[in-house]
Simulated scan of single mutants.
Amino acid sequence: MNIDRRHLFRIAVAALAGWLGISAFAAPASAADKITVFAAASLKNALDAANAAWTKETATETTVSYAASSALAKQIEAGAPADVFISADLAWMDYVAEKKLIKDGTRSNLLGNRIVLVATKDAAKPVDIKEGFDLAGLVGDGKLAMGAVDSVPAGKYGKAALEKLGVWSSVEGKVAGAESVRAALVLVSRGEAPYGIVYQTDAAADPGVAIVGTFPEDSHPPIIYPIAILTESKSPNAAAYLDFLKSDKAARFFTEQGFTILK
């Protein structure tokens, strides 16, 4: 009896696949099934962990581009392909919304955060952050690392706090404006700036720095991370992904990094 060798091969592959617990001839996931996320740089540690859990649960892959919210918003405006945008402030989400680039009914406020003063871990001493505190004296001849104060959300929050506390004019000339809050954090971690203003979640992610003071919440606008699906998204899984990030399953990944959950 002649037995088709291709048939035997298919039987063998199917048997092996069954033993491994996978589908022998399942079609590979299409690009549309994957989710591309543009997310504020300060989200990296928490969102990477949440995305790993999402992929494990759904077998849907995510690709994330992390950068300053301002840079991401401009890329979206320029037509960069993405499904989801998570901004570190309301202003840059508003900017994208005004361009009609987010889907109606998908926007919500996901997370909250705090801004803190950090120093290199070896030189960290507590600082009483209050009206008129001598930040310029602390910085001395060095630099104060911050996100760019005209565009990066953490930089804008930091400037607002320093203005409210009456110390901005004394340190304005000492500011080293970075392209993102994570870039500002690196300046302090490497000892290139003695102090920096970053989110408390960033400080928790870098063992090279220590929080020496926390800015009063009433010294700056509320720190809110909005999320939305972009109008150009073709992913059938984008809505489910948003629901996952807003679920109790994902909440622990954010709270472990110091974020607060907004619902």
Rank of each mutant, 00 (worst) to 15 (best):
Y225A: 09
M1R: 12
A136K: 07
A193G: 06
I86F: 07
N109D: 15
K121V: 15
L43W: 02
G177I: 00
L230T: 03
G177W: 00
A27K: 13
T255D: 09
K99N: 07
I86L: 09
A203T: 03
G258D: 01
G21S: 06
A32R: 14
A184I: 01
D202T: 08
T55A: 14
V209F: 10
A183Q: 13
V96D: 04
I76Y: 07
T63G: 05
S180V: 00
K164A: 15
P221L: 03
K34C: 05
S169I: 00
K246I: 00
T62Q: 05
W19G: 03
Y195R: 02
K130H: 09
P194Q: 08
A68W: 01
V37P: 08
P81A: 13
S23A: 09
V167M: 07
K100R: 13
K44G: 04
V116H: 09
K143S: 04
V181M: 12
V139S: 07
A204C: 01
Q200C: 03
S169M: 03
R10A: 11
S235C: 08
T60R: 13
I227K: 08
A239M: 10
I224R: 13
A14V: 09
K159W: 01
K56W: 09
D248G: 11
E172H: 08
N237H: 15
T120N: 15
K34Q: 13
A12D: 07
D150W: 04
P216A: 03
A184H: 09
A82I: 01
Q75H: 05
S169A: 14
V171K: 04
A154M: 06
V167I: 15
P216W: 06
P207V: 00
V96W: 06
D141S: 13
T106V: 00
R10Q: 11
E179C: 10
D150R: 09
K130E: 08
T260M: 05
W92K: 11
K56R: 15
F85Y: 12
A52M: 13
S70K: 04
F215W: 05
S170M: 00
F133N: 04
A29P: 05
K159F: 01
P126V: 10
E172V: 08
L90G: 14
A239H: 12
Q75R: 13
V13S: 12
A59T: 11
Q200H: 13
V37T: 10
M146S: 05
E179R: 14
A91L: 12
E57N: 14
I102Q: 12
P28R: 14
L185H: 11
A161I: 01
A73D: 07
A46Y: 07
D4F: 00
A228M: 03
A40P: 00
N113A: 14
P221E: 06
M1D: 10
E77T: 08
L43D: 02
D94Y: 07
P28Q: 14
A145S: 13
V198H: 02
K156F: 00
S65H: 02
N113D: 15
L242G: 08
A250T: 02
N113Q: 10
P126K: 15
A26I: 01
V116I: 02
E77L: 12
A119P: 05
